[in-house]
């Protein structure tokens, strides 16, 4: 059980948070103009990285804010936390 440094509340147990999966998958602005393949790419296809991954987390049992987090999925070490809309750090 790791500790997440919520950018709004500070360090809290991971059990207070829920994960929203891979970050920076932008919802297409014009979905109707995509073909089925392109839509499926957005909808389902994931990098599912073993290693440093950028992902979305929500402080579900706290401030309920969504934010981004950079975590190494091979050892759960967290490298960075940043707010929605902020530029992803270079890791």
């Amino acid at each position: 059980m790791f500790i997440i440094n919520c950018p709004y509340c500070g360090e809290r147990d991971q059990s207070e948070f829920s994960c929203g999966g891979e970050a920076h998958i932008i919802r297409p602005k014009q979905p109707t103009e995509l073909n089925d393949d392109q839509w499926a790419e957005y909808l389902f296809m994931r990098k599912n990285i073993k290693g440093v991954q950028f992902e979305r987390w929500n402080h579900a049992h706290g401030c309920r804010k969504w934010f981004n987090l950079v975590r190494d999925t091979s050892n759960d070490k967290i490298h960075a936390v940043y707010k929605m809309g902020e530029k992803p750090p270079v890791i």
Binding site: G21, A40, E41, F44, M45, R46, K47, N48, I49, K50, T73
Partner: peptide
């Protein structure tokens, strides 16, 4: 590790590990 192997071939899969 399916996605890890898929990535070697330049594929993405609808998977989460």
């Amino acid at each position: 590790h399916s996605s890890v192997i898929a990535n070697m071939a330049g594929l993405k899969l609808p998977l989460e590990s």
